[in-house]
Amino acid sequence: MAGKVYLIGAGPGDPDLLTVRALRLLQSAELVVHDRLVSPEIMALVPSAARRVPVGKSAGFHSVPQDRINEILVELALEGHSVIRLKGGDPLIFGRGSEEAEALAAAGIPYSYIPGITAAQGASASTGVPLTHRGLATGVRYVTGHRAQDATLDLAWESLADPDTTLVVYMGAGNMAEIAARLIAAGMPVDLPVLAVSHATTPRETRLLSDLTQIGADLARAPMEAPVLFMIGRVAGLYETAALPLPRDLRSAHLRVVSNG
């Protein structure tokens, strides 16, 4: 008899932000298929006796292709295992959880989703910068800045270049200079603030405050470790007055970085 697969969102990294159901399932897990970017604090909750199957992917290097991940989940479930599929953030927001669910459904394997706090919400809470704010942003949009190798970064630039909406870019560190240039070309103000947050909500969190003109050069001077999230919009300008502190605050004229490392 096939086992069940639980597609679990691990949230942005802080174990205190897990749902109660996610925590309960992790603490009783026997087999965990996990992404590379699930924080070590989250992984520490998995029982030491549990089998761990890493399937992590990183920019430019996919240790396990997505099609193979789908196969692994099906194979393990058909062996009768109860499988925890652990993903950073939320499995249904740039997490490819629905693709894995399709493969499971096609094989007749039961599954369920356990949502997680997505990185945008985690970064907003940890930095103190809101995603929406009266008079600054009437809405928020999430996009991915990742592209397949040699593919064109094809986004609806004219639609995204709306200064009244906060634009949150996931997985965009390697392409941020191009993203900024395309947004400016589509009409976004050149001095629009950009807040980049690495490892949001964890002890390794690092922040960089810049603007659309400078963000590419700033990242070249001070590369940030993945996962990095970008909050683009007027709300990012609130960082100067509303930011929740980190112990160390490093600033310069064009490169304003804060870190607790």
Rank of each mutant, 00 (worst) to 15 (best):
H62W: 08
L229T: 02
I184A: 02
M171A: 07
S159R: 11
A177S: 14
R24A: 13
Q149T: 10
S252G: 11
P227N: 08
A2Y: 11
H254Q: 15
G89R: 05
A77E: 07
P203M: 14
I84E: 10
Y142V: 00
L7P: 02
V258L: 14
H133K: 13
A106M: 06
R251H: 14
T166L: 12
D162Y: 01
S210G: 10
P40D: 15
I72W: 05
V235I: 13
D164C: 03
I72K: 08
A22P: 00
V64L: 12
R96F: 04
E102L: 14
V228Q: 12
A29W: 03
A120C: 12
S58G: 05
D164R: 10
L86R: 03
G135Q: 13
K57D: 03
D14G: 01
D164N: 12
L195P: 02
G172K: 05
M176Y: 03
T206S: 15
L131T: 00
E30C: 02
A196H: 04
G11V: 01
V46R: 10
M188V: 01
A177G: 07
D191W: 07
S210H: 10
I184P: 01
I179Q: 04
L250E: 15
V190T: 15
A103E: 11
I109C: 07
L76R: 12
D249C: 12
R96V: 01
S210Y: 08
T206H: 06
A217Y: 00
G128K: 11
A220K: 14
D14S: 09
T206D: 08
G60D: 11
A50K: 08
T166K: 09
H133I: 00
E100H: 04
S198I: 05
V168H: 07
R51D: 09
A243P: 00
L167E: 07
A253G: 14
G9Y: 08
V235S: 06
R204F: 09
G97P: 02
A29E: 11
D67K: 12
P12L: 14
V169D: 04
T241V: 14
H254K: 14
R207C: 10
L92H: 01
E30R: 15
G11N: 06
I109Y: 03
A200P: 01
H133P: 02
P245E: 14
P54F: 00
R24L: 02
R68S: 04
G172Y: 02
T213N: 13
G89D: 06
V5W: 05
A236M: 07
V228W: 09
H62S: 12
S48R: 15
G233R: 07
P91K: 13
K4N: 05
V74D: 06
Q27E: 15
A50L: 08
A44V: 03
E158M: 04
H133R: 15
L244P: 01
R234W: 05
G172T: 00
E75H: 06
V143S: 09
E30I: 01
K57I: 05
Y170P: 04
S63K: 11
D150R: 14
A253M: 12
R52L: 15
A137D: 11
S82C: 06
T213W: 09
A10P: 01
R134T: 03
R234S: 07
G174L: 13
A119T: 07
K87W: 04
L246A: 08
A242S: 14
I117G: 03
L17V: 00
V46Y: 03
D14R: 09
R21S: 05
P47S: 03
D150C: 08
D211C: 13
K57P: 01
A105Y: 01
A222N: 11
